[in-house]
Computed example of a mutant assay.
Amino acid sequence: MFQWTGSSMVMYYMAMLTIEKEIFEAAKIDGAGFFRTLWSIVFPNLKGTTFTLSILGVIGGLKTFDLVWITTAGGPGSSTEFISTYLFRKSMLQQEVGYSSAVAIVLLTIALLITYFQLRIQKKMDN
Rank of each mutant, 00 (worst) to 15 (best):
M1I: 14
M1A: 15
M1C: 15
Q3N: 11
W4F: 14
T5H: 12
T5C: 13
M9E: 08
M11K: 09
M11Y: 08
Y13I: 01
M14Q: 15
A15H: 00
L17Y: 04
L17H: 09
E20F: 13
E22T: 14
I23E: 10
A26T: 05
A26E: 06
A27N: 06
D30H: 05
D30S: 03
G31A: 00
A32G: 08
F35W: 14
L38G: 02
L38I: 06
W39Q: 08
S40I: 03
V42N: 00
V42H: 02
N45W: 01
K47P: 06
F51S: 03
T52S: 03
S54A: 14
S54L: 15
I55K: 07
L56S: 06
G57W: 06
G57R: 05
I59R: 02
I59E: 04
G60Q: 14
G61N: 10
T64S: 07
T64D: 03
F65I: 04
F65M: 03
I70C: 07
T72D: 04
G74R: 00
G75D: 06
S79T: 12
T80N: 02
S84R: 04
S84I: 01
L87T: 03
R89P: 01
K90F: 11
S91T: 06
L93T: 12
Q95M: 14
Q95E: 13
Q95Y: 15
Q95T: 15
E96T: 02
E96I: 03
V97K: 07
G98I: 05
S101E: 09
V103M: 13
A104F: 01
V106W: 08
V106Y: 05
T109C: 15
A111M: 15
L113W: 14
I114N: 02
T115H: 00
Y116I: 12
Y116F: 13
F117T: 12
F117R: 07
L119V: 15
R120T: 10
R120F: 11
Q122M: 12
Q122I: 13
K123E: 09
K124Y: 08
D126K: 11
N127E: 13
